[in-house]
Design a protein around this nucleic acid. Structure first.
Lengths: 194, 194
DNA sequence: CACCGAAGGTAGACACCGTCTACGACGACT
DNA sequence: AGTCGTCGTAGACGGTGTCTACCTTCGGTG
């Protein structure tokens, strides 16, 4: 971002992001990142005392990226809340599918320290956007907006997870996750408008 | 189970199950299991050529356990499909919360080989139970039963995941996942009966 | 100008991991 | 009695994260 381009700290994060996107979460070792950044294996320690710190910084970039994608999608989208929610959901699932390694890392709480590096502060705005749209699309008989938004998010997340896991298509016979996505949106927000 | 109690193979799996339940997924190393089983670090290799094989066997026990719990719950439950689905869902979430390490392992596709050890065959019956109940509770205007069941499962799974992740309560302000669970069931199956 | 002290990166050690391989003990069967 | 399989041992190898001692380099101050 605004960090010195040549600064090792930023370079380590950039290399890590590239690595997790290209080779998945398990490839992101401290030593491998250091190697690709052209420094010794001990160098990262100056900026990231622990592996968790570096991974958290990388995951933070992932949340920022996802948030930016969602905002970009919404910028060009219809004003109708239901349509916007559909676009948001599709962006979420597309992100999970296209950047599987990063998506996995982002929710591996055992590898991350959500307290450090303002990881949580980076992920909350995304939920706020979702919650705001849900509040607009909510019908009077629905659950409270926060609960409805949480349930919908959980549904999106579950679809992404189970899809990555591999048994969902096998169990449902679906060949794509679009049917599941539409079912989830219909369930939480009511039938799609004509 | 029916395996020789004194057989090393069964003992390794039992120790692994115990270990993952007690200390979480990251504690389940080949060498630690061997240590606790009182054998050398190379011994497991005779029965489980690779770490993935042993973890898969452990996860298989997890699925069997979860399936058994669900079946036990349903045995004593009301015949009404909606009630039964609620009981199933609660059992699923309770399991995820109570045996977090095992639950994590069960869906860590990067640590498991779903092909080997009939892991998939062990997890599918559980989904079949869910799908069967959903088919009974399904309303005519709902999505096809398989899709509806998949979407509901994804919702359950997402609630479990995000709850474990830790940001859900923070975002929704909920102090328990019961509100989310009820919202999910209501969304997919229609409002709860009086 | 000389010095010095901190910042930033190097390099080696340590314990642990999964995997591979050579080897020994032991029991059953011919 | 002898031989062959089965099963577990034990050591090595390359990998990991972390810790620590060291070196280099550069900016400010006497």
């Amino acid at each position: 971002m605004d960090a010195d381009e040549t600064g090792l700290r930023a370079r380590l994060v950039a290399v890590g992001v590239d690595l997790v996107l290209r080779e998945g979460q398990s490839a992101v070792s401290l030593r491998e990142i250091a190697r690709r950044a052209g420094v010794s294996h001990g160098a990262p320690r100056r900026y990231f005392p622990t592996h968790v710190d570096l991974l958290s910084a990388i995951a933070r970039e992932g949340f920022a990226d996802l948030t930016a994608r969602v905002e970009r999608t919404l910028r060009d989208a219809d004003p109708d809340p239901r349509t916007r929610l559909t676009a948001l959901a599709r962006t979420y699932l597309d992100f999970a599918a296209a950047h599987r390694g990063m998506f996995e890392l982002m929710f591996r709480h055992d590898l991350l320290d959500s307290g450090r590096l303002r990881l949580r502060e980076t992920s909350l705005p995304l939920f706020a956007v979702l919650a705001d749209l849900v509040a607009q699309a909510r019908r009077p008989t629905d659950a409270p907006a926060a609960v409805l938004a949480g349930a919908l998010w959980a549904n999106l997340h579950g679809i992404a997870q189970l899809w990555a896991w591999g048994s969902l298509p096998l169990a449902t016979g679906a060949t794509d996750d679009d049917a599941l996505l539409r079912a989830a949106l219909d369930a939480h927000l009511g039938p799609a408008p004509a």
